[in-house]
Design a protein around this nucleic acid. Structure first.
Lengths: 185, 185
DNA sequence: CGCTAGATTCACAAATTTGTGAAGTTAAGA
DNA sequence: TCTTAACTTCACAAATTTGTGAATCTAGCG
């Protein structure tokens, strides 16, 4: 039927000079980007930020310029700018500028998930504050006050667990890296 | 200055017959409800659902009818209905009907947070599915494929940890209850 | 110092979401 | 079986969010 290897449908062949990025099936990549972005949206992230993030995640270099993002996602520079503003605020993407250039480059960390989770800690702390106020308003002795106090206990438990979990992840990750080190090279 | 205890500003005195609900400062309760609801909204929940949920959480009985919710939150029955539809879908509220009545009553569980977290498990599983597809599309050997594979590893770690965490919570909770049992009664 | 590539901001239009009133549906009680 | 209280659904209006093009700002480079 076709003389192409079966994995290939439509490959990028423009922009070959500036990245060496792609030997991949663009359709499939784009499908992954959009699917994963949708799931992030379901979890509460703004659509454009989710798309930009997923796009960076699925790029070989992990670094893309505004123009590249705009082209891949088919959106305007303004949209990219807005998405990046959010993503760098929540620290999921960092902005770089090459020394002799006026183009920004946006990068995903390899540790972004770990860090995102670590930041959850603050969210929990804020929630706990509100819950404590609630217990005070309602009185510790009222049924409602007691219910909220129980909620508070759960969140406090969660926060404590989170610390341990992050610790264990670091160990797990370092172990994996060490294994890779001794086997792979 | 005042002959009232200082906690009191404006108390409900309507509806005294049907609940025995409130000996509390309505303003403060409402403030808690709205604040906590906002934080839930920030975390991605729909506004009305968040308000209904917070309202139930802050009620003495933990059970309210549609009419009560509508009155406390100043919204239409339709809005309550929509919020409840969502909340029962995600299993944060359950619907009851008193045997000889045509009024539904909506209840928060005391375990809703535990259960909400337990349900996160499914979300993680879905994400992992998408990530695996991504790795397949991009190839395990490409840098992007590798980055996504690392993400996958993190989520798998998280999912495994979640199981243990939930287990520990159940133990912690049972311990707290036992303590309460022997001390309080 | 001016020119210009590139990022950002702004006003606005399009799309989406949210809540309402009213009509529709369901089931308890006479 | 009829009546009616209570929940649900639907069409629509209001509010919010999202992305665009154009104008503006910033900083390399000649």
């Amino acid at each position: 039927m076709s003389e192409q290897p079966q994995q290939s449908a439509h490959r990028t062949d423009d922009a070959r000079q500036d990245g060496g990025e792609d030997t991949r099936d663009d359709g499939a990549v784009s499908q992954f980007v959009e699917r994963f972005a949708s799931q992030l949206v379901d979890a509460g992230m703004q659509r454009m930020s989710a798309r930009v993030f997923a796009c960076l995640l699925a790029s070989d270099s992990g670094v893309l310029t505004s123009a590249e993002l705009g082209e891949r996602l088919q959106v305007s520079p303004a949209a990219v700018s807005g998405a990046i503003r959010y993503l760098s605020q929540v620290d999921m993407v960092s902005r770089e500028r090459e020394p002799g250039s006026r183009r920004d480059r946006y990068r995903v960390h390899s540790d972004q998930w770990y860090e995102a989770l670590a930041r959850r800690d603050n969210v929990l702390t804020r929630w706990e504050g509100t819950l404590r106020e609630g217990v005070d308003s309602l009185g510790e002795d009222s049924p409602a006050g007691r219910r909220i106090a129980e909620t508070l206990i759960f969140f406090e438990f969660l926060q404590k667990e989170l610390t341990g979990l992050l610790q264990r992840w670091r160990e797990h990750r370092d172990q994996l890296r060490a294994d890779l080190e001794s086997a792979g090279r």
